[in-house]
Simulated scan of single mutants.
Amino acid sequence: MMLGFIYQFLHSSFLWFWMKWFLRQVTGKCELQRICHGYQPGAARTSRIENSLKSSKNKVLQDAVNVQEDAVESCVTHIMKEKQIKEQKDPKFKVNLRQCLVQISGYNALFLSVEEQRKEVFDSDNEAHEKMLLKLWDLLMPSVELESRITKQWGNIGFQGDDPKTDFRGMGMLGLVNLVFFSEKYTATARHVLSHANHPSLGYSYAIVGINLTEMAYSLLRSGALKPHFYNTVAGKPHIDHFHQLYCYLAYEFDKFWVEEKPASIMEFNIYREKFHDKVKGFLLEPEVSLVLKIESKNCPDD
């Protein structure tokens, strides 16, 4: 069995090498050129460029998948030199490859930004952190005044205890920033979702579920599963607000999913969380995937 596997690997590698050589002779273009000219901008092109670079035996091409944003231009030049591509003969290649590398390097940089925010611990002595937490309350409960900073009232927006800071341990400030971003960008929609979360029979812990969805978004980003989404929706370098926007999509879509599924109780949360997670991962396998919340800011969706 092992010998069969080795034979199949060597056979397929050998055939692929000669197939690429044959295509280069026939078309006069290397694999990178064929991808840049044969596919539309977005995941269709950038993912293939990334895979081609990763599988290359040329170190210049291999290193390109980890290029820093400020080194993209020189990286493109080095690749063209290695592959003996003349800009005068193929000017579009340089433009297309640069865009792909900007997206690839941008995704790597986005993860570092998200990771930095995740590692930032909520600090009650940090005035900015406290203001953000109180802002979340004001956005979601504008007509109700907090009795005190530590109070059971936090349960009304889905925190577990009297002091929400304990719920941010897993996702750090990233969890809070996502909750505030959704509530500020789509205020009426967030309140609408909160009303579902407070339903007497179908309710769930709004803030805790929100932090859980932040963990979902983070794990998808870390694994690289979100690359097709960002490659399709952001033509250049994605910024952290693009990640927060993805969270808004997850928060809204999970609420719809939960209400439609009608779980027997909150005790089944993990089951439906995984079902929703699988649904999202399925979307991310689609070539044209774009997980964008299609609701105008400040407007509430119809029931």
Score class of each variant (00 low, 15 high):
residue 132 M to A: 04
residue 132 M to V: 00
residue 132 M to Y: 03
residue 132 M to L: 14
residue 132 M to H: 07
residue 132 M to T: 14
residue 133 L to Q: 11
residue 133 L to S: 09
residue 133 L to G: 05
residue 133 L to R: 15
residue 133 L to H: 08
residue 134 L to K: 14
residue 134 L to S: 06
residue 134 L to N: 12
residue 135 K to V: 05
residue 135 K to F: 02
residue 135 K to D: 12
residue 135 K to L: 13
residue 135 K to H: 10
residue 136 L to M: 07
residue 136 L to C: 02
residue 136 L to S: 04
residue 137 W to R: 02
residue 137 W to M: 03
residue 137 W to Y: 11
residue 138 D to T: 13
residue 138 D to E: 12
residue 138 D to N: 12
residue 138 D to H: 12
residue 138 D to C: 08
residue 138 D to F: 04
residue 138 D to M: 08
residue 138 D to I: 02
residue 139 L to N: 13
residue 139 L to I: 05
residue 139 L to M: 12
residue 139 L to Y: 14
residue 139 L to P: 00
residue 140 L to S: 04
residue 140 L to R: 03
residue 140 L to K: 02
residue 140 L to T: 01
residue 140 L to Y: 04
residue 141 M to K: 15
residue 141 M to D: 03
residue 141 M to N: 08
residue 141 M to F: 08
residue 141 M to R: 15
residue 141 M to Y: 04
residue 142 P to R: 11
residue 142 P to C: 09
residue 142 P to V: 08
residue 143 S to D: 15
residue 143 S to P: 00
residue 143 S to R: 14
residue 143 S to C: 06
residue 143 S to H: 12
residue 143 S to N: 15
residue 143 S to Y: 10
residue 144 V to P: 00
residue 144 V to K: 15
residue 145 E to N: 11
residue 145 E to R: 15
residue 145 E to P: 00
residue 145 E to A: 11
residue 146 L to Q: 08
residue 146 L to V: 10
residue 146 L to R: 11
residue 147 E to M: 11
residue 147 E to P: 00
residue 148 S to C: 07
residue 148 S to Q: 10
residue 148 S to D: 14
residue 148 S to A: 15
residue 148 S to Y: 01
residue 148 S to G: 09
residue 149 R to T: 10
residue 149 R to C: 02
residue 149 R to M: 09
residue 149 R to A: 12
residue 149 R to W: 03
residue 150 I to S: 11
residue 151 T to E: 04
residue 151 T to M: 06
residue 151 T to A: 09
residue 151 T to V: 09
residue 151 T to G: 02
residue 151 T to S: 15
residue 151 T to F: 06
residue 151 T to P: 04
residue 151 T to Y: 06
residue 151 T to R: 07
residue 152 K to I: 04
residue 152 K to T: 09
residue 153 Q to Y: 10
residue 153 Q to I: 05
residue 153 Q to K: 14
residue 153 Q to N: 05
residue 154 W to T: 03
residue 154 W to K: 09
residue 154 W to F: 06
residue 154 W to M: 09
residue 155 G to V: 06
residue 155 G to P: 05
residue 155 G to H: 07
residue 156 N to T: 08
residue 156 N to R: 14
residue 156 N to S: 11
residue 156 N to I: 01
residue 157 I to G: 00
residue 157 I to L: 08
residue 157 I to P: 00
residue 157 I to W: 02
residue 157 I to D: 02
residue 157 I to S: 02
residue 158 G to Q: 04
residue 158 G to Y: 06
residue 158 G to M: 05
residue 159 F to S: 01
residue 159 F to T: 01
residue 159 F to A: 04
residue 159 F to W: 13
residue 159 F to V: 03
residue 159 F to L: 06
residue 159 F to I: 02
residue 159 F to R: 00
residue 159 F to Q: 01
residue 159 F to M: 05
residue 159 F to N: 00
residue 160 Q to I: 05
residue 160 Q to D: 09
residue 160 Q to T: 07
residue 160 Q to V: 06
residue 161 G to C: 05
residue 162 D to M: 12
residue 162 D to P: 00
residue 162 D to R: 14
residue 162 D to I: 07
residue 162 D to C: 07
